[in-house]
Design a protein around this nucleic acid. Structure first.
Lengths: 135, 135
DNA sequence: TATTGTTATACTCTATAACTATA
DNA sequence: TATAGTTATAGAGTATAACAATA
């Protein structure tokens, strides 16, 4: 009897989330806050709707996450030039600095998770995950 | 800027869990019930403590899951022959039948998740995950 | 009419502490 | 004293519906 790939994914994913949660504690952030910072850093400025689509997070959850990050001074909500309904989530200087530190930490935790694999295998895993993980 | 493997794992794992949850709705089960049935089927009979260790589930959560499965008539709690504290979780005939149907469904959902990959790539992914997913 | 962000709400998941009965 | 199971509880994650402002 073989474990299903879904089961293996779920367990490895859960471990990754919990590991990053523990690592982010000093920043007062959770894994999902980090993913929002990551998306905003990658794209420069994103509507909340786009953030939710990109990360697979419900719009109402995006509101709460961006609230937290804004209170912590890590993001701003800028007006959209053409659409007054839309608010663009943009990293502050402080947010960019915090994201840099958190990204270094995430990379360290990745290394621990992937310790049993060599460099080529890590690259293969990342590639396969990227191909099935699109929302 | 590259996505972290932890992030990719978390997202793919979340999708797998939600997909299986939807598929299991007709059975009145959730993904975690299914993993308990899977472990019990694989090992014949397991102490709740062993179930928790194996699946990475807290003992108090195991109680609730086994309660559900017992109420549904899918598992029994048998006494341990040597230790009266321990209760062995064993599949009933009904539980074995339901697990078989659910396993077919899980395999179908795996296929959907893994659609972008060919057979060799699927095997590679399962192998890599198995190597990093040990608790 | 449809969409963006928001609020309220409920349900699931996860984790912790304290208790019982056994060892 | 330590361990297996249990109970209670709280916090985090997820999903849905309804609303205001705007398109």
């Amino acid at each position: 009897m073989d474990d299903s790939v879904g089961f293996l994914l779920a367990r490895a994913g859960g471990r990754a989330i919990r590991g990053l949660n523990r690592g982010l504690e000093p920043f007062g952030l959770r894994t999902r806050h980090y993913t929002v910072l990551m998306a905003a850093a990658q794209h420069g400025g994103l509507a909340q709707r786009e953030l939710g689509d990109l990360l697979g997070i419900d719009p109402s959850a995006v509101v709460a996450l961006v609230d937290d990050l804004q209170t912590a001074g890590l993001v701003r909500r800028d007006p959209h030039p053409d659409d007054r309904r839309t608010r663009l989530v943009v990293l502050t200087d402080e947010g960019l600095k915090t994201f840099g530190e958190a990204a270094a930490l995430a990379s360290k935790i990745d290394d621990e998770t992937l310790a049993p694999l060599d460099a080529a295998e890590r690259a293969t895993l990342a590639d396969l995950l990227r191909r099935i993980a699109r929302p």
